[in-house]
């Protein structure tokens, strides 16, 4: 689906948290995962800015690991604050999506 950028804006950070929560991973792998999920327009740069923000807000643990090519690669894992933030994201998501579904069904 095209043109999801605006709609995804507030939720992409939560998606990235969820992916990192599954296992320690790095920017390119996260991007690929989102692309395979169906968000084809998500580019590495966008994921990078989210990772940088998560790092600065103290929600992730970062480890630099050697890679086969080029400079060391940054790997990300959730810390306790990150797990709390992820739980908050899903709670908010459940609330918003249930309200919007209700609206669509014509309830009040």
């Amino acid at each position: 689906m095209d043109d999801l950028t605006e709609m995804l804006k507030g939720t992409l950070e939560g998606c990235v948290l969820e992916i990192i929560g599954g296992e320690e991973t790095y920017g390119y792998a996260i991007t690929r995962r989102l692309n395979e999920l169906g968000f084809a327009d998500v580019i590495e740069g966008t994921v990078y800015t989210i990772l940088l923000r998560l790092e600065r807000n103290g929600l992730v643990q970062v480890a630099k690991r050697r890679s086969e090519v080029g400079p060391p690669r940054k790997f990300y894992a959730l810390n306790d604050a990150g797990r709390e933030e992820l739980a908050r994201f899903w709670a908010k998501w459940d609330y918003v999506s249930s309200r919007i579904d209700k609206l669509k069904e014509g309830g009040r």
């Binding site: 580019i43 590495e44 966008t46 090519v69 080029g70 690669r73």
Partner: peptide
Amino acid sequence: EGAAAGKGVRQLIG
């Protein structure tokens, strides 16, 4: 990192 992986800059950040 992007350059080392052989990507162009636009491929990386759009």
